[in-house]
Amino acid sequence: MAELSEKAHLLHSKMLESPSSTLFNQEELQQMLHISTPVELLNLAQELMNKKLVKLVKQDGDLKFQAVSTTEANKITQMTDDEAMVYSYIEASGREGIWTKTIKAKTNLHQHVVVRCLKALENQRYIKSIKSVKHPTRKIYMLYNLQPSIEVTGGPWFTDSELDTEFIDSLLTVIWRFTASKTYPTAFQPPSSANNPIQASYPSNHTGFVNLDAIMEFIIANKITNIDLGLNDIRSLCDVLVYDDKLELISHTTDTYKATWQSVLEAGYGRAYNEEGNEGLISATLRKNLNNQPFTVFEHYAVIAENGEDSDIVYMDAWSQD
């Protein structure tokens, strides 16, 4: 930087004092150095431009100046012109990244040249290639030190741009189990004499059901995941559980949920009175009465698959298929 004139150096350091990516117009720069004539400023600006210490940015039809840090400028001066051009577009794309085809179209360079530049930049760790959830097949580049935006990564549900269903499923199970334990006092406990073996419920005016905050707190307190989840993420998980008919939104409330009894039954709980070893819980006649109930599709979990003849099986869609 030895060749840089004192005044140009002063201007550059004054520009860097403002937060990065601040845009200055001509008058502002003139005021900074108390320069009266634009010609003088022009010389200084040209000097800085040559050293790549200042970028020209067009905003609303006006030309504006932006300071570039010395290290950054060093980086760029070491690059070839092509590389610098490619780099500038990647830099401009910010956290969204830019598709190789767009680079090619914007720079008007040949495919080979673009690929060569990208390789060189990648080797120097100036840029990196990322995967986008929206366009999984596209090769997208962004600056090495940036984090891809949520649109690109797809949010907490994506791992390596793939929907992480296992992660989602385990979170769903945790939330359901937590809510169910708050909805049905004894669902997950072994039967005891203190509560009715067939059904033990909270009264209808019970208010201890969980809301989003409680679920969030539970997840954080038990360190269930190291991924940052927002309330919105929890809400979308709860929505899925509602679609699964595992949770219900309590009427006249916002974001307060209770687990459905059907989901508890389907998960294999709440039927301890009917299990082996628990015969003493209820009387034999009652058990007989309870087990002698008409068929209902809601108790599909209790139906034993029979192995009759294949020709005897009927299919629900037989009418439309036959």
Partner: peptide, 22 residues
Amino acid sequence: LPHDLDLRNSILTYNFVKHNLT
């Protein structure tokens, strides 16, 4: 109600008291 129906402890006692107070 059927005679074999036993409702004891089917509504939680702790809340039961609370309910009557509210």
